[in-house]
Simulated scan of single mutants.
Amino acid sequence: MTIDVMFPYYGDVAMMKAAVSSVLAQTDTDFKLTIVDDGFPDDSLPAYFEELVASDDRIVYFKNETNLGANGNYRKCVGLIEHEIVVIMGADDLMKPNYLATVRAAFENPEVDIVQPGIEVIDENGQVYLPLMDRIKAAMRRSLVGKASSAIVEGEALAANLIDGNWLYFPSVAWRASAIKTHNFRQGYDVVQDLALALDVIMDGGKMFVTGTVCFQYRRHRESDSSVRALDGRRFAEERRFFDEKVREFTALNWTRAARAARFHVTSRLNAASLLPKVVSKRMWPGLRTLSAHVVKP
C-alpha cells in the first residue's frame, strides 16, 4: 500500500533539500513523493527538481503558475492525493528513517483516521531542544493519553484537550485519505488550519492513534511566519475567529466541555500575554492592542 508524501514547498532551499533527502532515506520505500512548488524565487531550483524527478520514479513535481499561499497550496496537495495514507510534509522538517514504517503500522487498525507519532523538536541548526511551548504540549498530551506508549483517542475529550493546548505537530501527522479529502483545509485560515482540519475529522467521528515512537523531527524557528504573525497580532485575531466558530459548532453537537474550552481558550490567552513585553519592546502598538484584547476579552 503506497503512502502519499505530499510536499508543499516555499522557503529555505537547503532545508527543503534536507527534508527531501529524509523522505528518500526511509526504510519503508513504498511511497510517492509529490512536490508542489509555490514559486519560491531561486534560480537553482529548476535544475534541482528536474534532476530529482529524473533520478527516482517515485517523485513527481508540480509548480504553481501563481503563488497560492500556504492554505491554497495545502488544498492543492489534497486534490493530488492518490493513495489511502497521506502525510503533508513540512518543507523544513525531517523524517527519521522509521517514520513511514511507524505510521503504516498504525493504520493497520481500520478505525484510525489520524496518526500523531512521537517527535523531536529541532532548531534552525538541526539541534534537538525542548522549549517551553513544547514542554507544555507534552504535558497536555499526557493529560489525555497518560503514560501509555500508544493510545487511540476520540470524541469530545480529544477535541477539548486540543483546544486547551494544541499538541499536534501537523507536518508529522499522517491521515487516512478519505478523512482529509472529505474535510480538506478550511479556507481563510493560515495559522490554525491544521487544528481546524483535525477537529473537523474528530467531530465527524474520526479516531486518532497516538504513539510515543519517535520518528520525526519538527523544526521550530525563532522567527517563523507564525511568530511574526503572533507579534503583530494577526495570529491571535485568527485564533479568536476560530475559537468563536468552534464554540458554535461544539454547542450544536452538545459538546459542552469542548465549547467551554473554546470559549475560554486559556492557553492561547497565556501565549498572547507572554508576548506582550516583546511587543512593547519593539513598539508594535497595533499588535499590542490586538494581543491585549485577546488576553482580556471574554
Results as ranks from 00 to 15, higher is better:
2 T>R: 14
4 D>Q: 08
9 Y>V: 08
9 Y>S: 04
9 Y>R: 03
10 Y>W: 13
10 Y>L: 10
10 Y>N: 09
11 G>V: 11
11 G>N: 08
12 D>K: 09
12 D>I: 14
13 V>I: 13
13 V>D: 04
17 K>G: 05
17 K>S: 05
18 A>H: 09
18 A>S: 11
20 V>P: 07
21 S>C: 07
23 V>Q: 03
24 L>F: 04
24 L>G: 06
26 Q>W: 08
26 Q>G: 15
26 Q>P: 15
27 T>I: 08
27 T>H: 04
29 T>V: 13
29 T>K: 07
32 K>V: 05
34 T>H: 03
35 I>F: 04
37 D>F: 13
38 D>P: 12
39 G>S: 04
39 G>F: 04
40 F>S: 05
42 D>Q: 01
44 S>M: 13
44 S>C: 14
44 S>E: 14
44 S>D: 14
45 L>Q: 06
46 P>A: 02
48 Y>S: 12
49 F>S: 03
49 F>A: 04
53 V>N: 08
55 S>M: 08
55 S>Q: 12
55 S>T: 11
57 D>S: 14
59 I>Q: 01
59 I>V: 14
59 I>R: 01
60 V>A: 06
60 V>P: 06
61 Y>M: 01
61 Y>A: 01
65 E>I: 06
68 L>A: 09
69 G>H: 12
69 G>I: 09
70 A>C: 08
71 N>V: 09
71 N>C: 07
71 N>E: 09
72 G>M: 12
72 G>H: 12
72 G>V: 13
73 N>Y: 07
74 Y>W: 14
75 R>K: 06
75 R>G: 08
79 G>Y: 12
79 G>L: 06
80 L>Q: 04
81 I>R: 06
82 E>H: 09
83 H>N: 12
83 H>G: 02
84 E>I: 15
85 I>V: 15
85 I>P: 11
87 V>K: 01
88 I>F: 15
89 M>I: 05
89 M>Y: 08
90 G>S: 10
90 G>Q: 09
90 G>I: 10
93 D>W: 10
94 L>S: 09
94 L>Y: 06
94 L>P: 15
94 L>D: 03
94 L>V: 10
96 K>D: 15
98 N>T: 15
98 N>S: 09
99 Y>F: 14
100 L>R: 10
100 L>T: 09
100 L>G: 03
100 L>I: 02
101 A>N: 10
102 T>P: 00
104 R>M: 01
104 R>C: 00
104 R>D: 00
106 A>E: 00
106 A>V: 01
107 F>S: 14
107 F>N: 07
108 E>N: 11
112 V>Q: 04
113 D>V: 05
113 D>A: 03
113 D>Y: 06
113 D>G: 03
117 P>I: 00
118 G>H: 01
119 I>W: 02
120 E>D: 11
122 I>N: 00
122 I>W: 00
122 I>T: 01
123 D>Q: 01
123 D>Y: 01
124 E>R: 03
124 E>K: 03
124 E>Q: 05
127 Q>A: 06
127 Q>C: 04
127 Q>F: 09
128 V>P: 01
130 L>G: 11
130 L>W: 13
130 L>N: 12
131 P>E: 07
133 M>K: 10
134 D>E: 15
134 D>A: 06
135 R>V: 14
135 R>P: 12
